[in-house]
Structure formats: C-alpha cells, structure tokens
Design a protein around this nucleic acid. Sequence first.
DNA 1: TTGTATGCGTTATCAC
DNA 2: GTGATAACGCATACAA
Lengths: 339, 339
Amino acid sequence: MKSKITLKDIARELEVSISTVSKALKNSEEISRDTKEKVQAFARLYNYKPNNIAISLKNKRTKNIGVVIPDIVHHFFTTVIRGIEKYANAKGYNVIVCLSEESFDKEVINMEMLANGSIDGFIMSLSSETQAKKDFNHLKEVMEQGIPVVLFDRITNEIDCDKVIIDDKLGGYLATKKLIEQGKRKIALITTDDYLSVSKARGQGHRKALIDSGLEVDESRILKLPTMEMDEERIRSFFDSIEFDAVLCVNEIFAVFSMRVALEKGLKIPDDVAVIGFTNGLLSKYANPSLTVVAQHGEKMGEISAQMLIDKVESEKEEETFQTKILEPTLVVRDSTIN
Amino acid sequence: MKSKITLKDIARELEVSISTVSKALKNSEEISRDTKEKVQAFARLYNYKPNNIAISLKNKRTKNIGVVIPDIVHHFFTTVIRGIEKYANAKGYNVIVCLSEESFDKEVINMEMLANGSIDGFIMSLSSETQAKKDFNHLKEVMEQGIPVVLFDRITNEIDCDKVIIDDKLGGYLATKKLIEQGKRKIALITTDDYLSVSKARGQGHRKALIDSGLEVDESRILKLPTMEMDEERIRSFFDSIEFDAVLCVNEIFAVFSMRVALEKGLKIPDDVAVIGFTNGLLSKYANPSLTVVAQHGEKMGEISAQMLIDKVESEKEEETFQTKILEPTLVVRDSTIN
DNA sequence: TTGTATGCGTTATCAC
DNA sequence: GTGATAACGCATACAA
C-alpha cells in the first residue's frame, strides 16, 4: 500500500525545500526550469495530488456544498439534487447530502454537523416539522456565521436569504383552469395543511381559478392531509364522501392513487374524472393512464440554487442583497385530462 | 456577523494558553476545576464547536463517506442512499454523493476528486460504461492508497473488496418460476446487454427457471437493450414481433411501460399477460395495475454497505479479508400477476 | 533561484 | 496545573 505522497516527501527525496516543491508544482516564475522539471516529473511519477483537507484549512474554503432536504425518495428532490450536482461538480464542488426526513431535530443536527467547517454553504428545503414549528434559529445562526444559505421550494419569509421556488400559486391556478376549461365543475383538491408553504400557495391558486371562473369554493371538496405522506385510507374515504369530476393533487403520488380509486369506482379517466398532479416524475409519465402534471423543473431549480450559492460563496464582497428566483411552472398534458 | 470562535480566541479572551483551553474542554484531569468551569462556560456562551477540517487534518480522518452511483433518479439507488445516510449519520459520518451518470470518465474524475483526502472510504455501484469497458484501474489505485471500497449491486469480480449484492440470479429465477406456475409459457424478457452484471445474472436465473421447468429458451423472446435507458420504440416493436403471455423486466420502468403496451393492445393484465419487474419502487406500487416485482431491498443494502465500510475504516488492523454479502431478493406480488 | 518562517485550528507530548 | 512546542499538509511573505 503506497500511501499518498506529500510535498514533504517530494522535498526530502529531491533534497530541496518544501516551498520550492510547492512553487515548482505551481509553475512559479521564481523557480528554475531545471528544478521545475525535476519536481514536476517526480510528482507525476508518484502521482502527487494536493491534500484537499490541508487546502481547505489553509483557504478556509472546502469546496463542499451541504444539501439538506426532507426526503430523497420523492422524485422532485431527486431531480433537484441532480441539478445541484451537475452545476456544483462543473465548478469543482462536491455535494454533501443530508436528509432531515421531515424532522426538525434532524435538520438542526445535520446543519450543525456541517456548519463546523465542512461546507462553504447550504442549499436546503425545509422539513415539514420546521415549517410547522416556524422555528428557524438554526438557519439564523448559520447565516450569522457568514455561511450563505439558499432555500428552495419549501421556504420561509422569516429568513432573509437567496431563494428559488416555482410559482406554486400559478401552478395551482393553471391546473385548475385547465380542468375548468374542460368542463369540470366539481373539482376536488388533495393537499396538505397550510403550514407547508408550497401546499398553501397551490391551494390559493386553485381557489383563485375557481373564483375567477365564477365557481364556488366548496370546502368539502378539499382534503388536507397532515403531511405529504400517503394515507390511502383517508383518500379513499374522502372520495366516498364527495361528488367530483376532477381532482387536483399537490404531488404525483396522491394523484396516481386518486386515479386508481377512480378506476376502482368504475369511473373513466379523463371523461368521468380528470386528474392533475404536481411533479413531473416517472410516476406521472408511466402511470396508466399517464398523468397530467404541473412540472416543477426540479433540475433547473437545483442548478439555479447551486449557481446562486456558489456565486455568493465566491464573491468577495459582503453585499447583503438577496434575491428570490421564481420559476414558471409548466403544465404537462397527458392522458389523465382531455386533450 | 460573528465568525466562528476558535480555541485561540478563547485563550486570548481568558488569558490562558491554547492547550489549556483544549484540555479544559475535554475535561482533562490535568486542569483545575476553576479553569475548566471558566473555559467551558465561555465556550458554551460563544457556542464553540471544534473545526471539522482542522480535526480531519490532524486525525487523517474526515468522517465523510463518498458515494459514487450511476444515477439518482432510479428509485433503487435512491433507497440505497437513504440506507447509507441513515447508518452513516448515526455513526457521525456525512455522505458525499457523486453521480457518474453511467459515464466512465465521470466516475474516474469523481473518485479522484474525493480520494485526495475528502473521504475515508467509498461506497459505489459501477457505471454501465465501466462495466462495459472492464477498466477498473481507478478502483485499484484508490485501494492501493489504503482507502476502503465497498461495491454494491453493480460489482465486478476483478476487484477484491467488500461487496453487497442481491442474488440477482435467484431473483430472475423466482420471478420466472412464478410466471410458469401461473401457467404462462411464452415468457418474454426485457433486459440489457450482458456487460451489466445484474442483468446478466437475472437473465441466467430466468433461463434456469425455464429449463428447470422443461421449457425451451426462445431467444427471440429476449430483448437486450444497450442500457437501462428507456427506449419506447424498441420495446413497442419487440412486442409487435413476438407472441407472449408474460413479461419479465430487469427494472420497473420497462415493466410498467410493458403493461401500457399490453393494455394498448387490448390485452388483459394479468390474465392475457402477466408482468414482473425488478425494484420495489413507487412506480410498481402505484402503477395501474400495480406491479409484481422482485424487491431488491435497497435501503437494507445501503445500510449494510455503510456498516461494512465504516467497520473497515475504523478497524485499526490492516486485515485484507473481504466479504461479499448476498441479500435474498423477495417477490412482492401485486396485481400484474395472478394471485 | 532557493529557502525560512508563519499560519490555518486542533491535539499531544513534554517541560515547567 | 499550566503552557510551550511540534505536527497534520499546504501556501506565501519575506529573507538570503
């Protein structure tokens, strides 16, 4: 086992000083061609690579980005990670992924773990517990230490930082409008409690579309689940309790499951019931029938988040100007609505 | 902005030496109660936390694990990450995720990036390009440097290291047996070229089940796609070209899509055509009809991988004994096969 | 052109 | 009980 070679090793072997080696490897003008060639050849031969940790300590830059998300199994977050990874990697950064699993405590622990020098900045989406609790001290502390934070998707207005979201209200609006245009009048909404920022906004868009079209908002057609967790029982009994000719859901799982319930009831999709979900994932694409969704452009969101963060990290100036990027949601029309 | 406080800061403030502070915070016996209390109180007040990077440099231990996988959108890898994260986090490790995106070059670059001190060990699944090329020098080099590696799922026999896989051959066998037991005789197989270790093994299991049951292996009923990428065209035309009453697919996407094609042909599932896939993901669960699959237990696989890696990392002794853990696949029976 | 000294933040050894 | 010093690996200002 040949352990990693260091500057010191090279210096010893070649009987020069460490700094000479360091400079030679950087092709410094100060060093003679002879020495440079000798050192570089030796370094190449032994495959010298500088130790990242030492460089981090010196530069106070780790070239690591901490990504804290509630969940990795939901397709949306997966695509965001991919976007972050793509951009970050191209810029020479690594991505450390931590899962809060919707738990406030885990979110706090993860952030503390990373904030002690392991990363240059955070990209995160709040856990549902955090949004419910409205306790953002862990974010404030991190920011006070000068660590930049970019929030995406599940954000809060109580923290001043860069943010990337899609216009969820518009998403809810577009989807509902689409259903109305197709002649649907009894549109059900399956969402979560309002503390989740995205659900709230989507619900508002839904409501606005109804009102704009002169339809009444029937609260009994709205099912608010406590979390994004699937609850087959409640969704089933919800559908048993109402009349509906369309369903809008805040994620694709609820939507696909709604289609199953509808099919089981002998209803035809999209003629008897049209269904729209959020998140343009595999599920939507390969469901039978395929699902019309509001695409959230997760990968794009990840790229933008990474870009904003890295810009902040690498900008010398300590300008405290934060921006919120709002992406446009897109309706991806498939077979669960009428074409 | 109050930047992070260091030992030096505390020492200066309290007018003691850095080493005294360090020892006091570790509750060393050498230090007087008075000093300890003073120092600890001060540290608590200013929320002192040791700098991870400095500790890493000192200990030559980063408490980071590098995870290199081909893809993050496939549900299987997602669950593995979750398993790794879970175990690693509990042990105080962070997880750095790098995506090779099935590219050999990216895999190499990512590993080199991490191998220079950023991580204590690797958990990885080979990219398809790497499996096709059979070039594993990047793995060898890393291991020669004394960095432990755990391979999971997509492995190779050419590298001696810890491995975690499921018995893919058994998985293919079980699935095929199941179909045969249900009276299916014209079983199609949608897989990839043999260079992908898992596909090859699954195909072998499939073949063995056919032979064991006295059925002939009809090569025309086997479609080998170049990669795990979806190719709707080829799958469609494949189904146009053969007679079949069942389909086994090496992933859930192929399987769900096969169901769609069958449905479009007016075939009934599972009576006219039974379908089984690999990977017990959301897609399988929420597809209509729901899909019978061979579960790969990704989360378990992740946990075991992390455990094996961390054991290696933390074991002082340099024993070069490697083990391969083989998990049992499980058939999860749903509506795409006859109950 | 090369080398010395210093520092990044921490810990450990040894001296006082 | 406390503190000075060296070391982890590297970079750089400053000497020589």
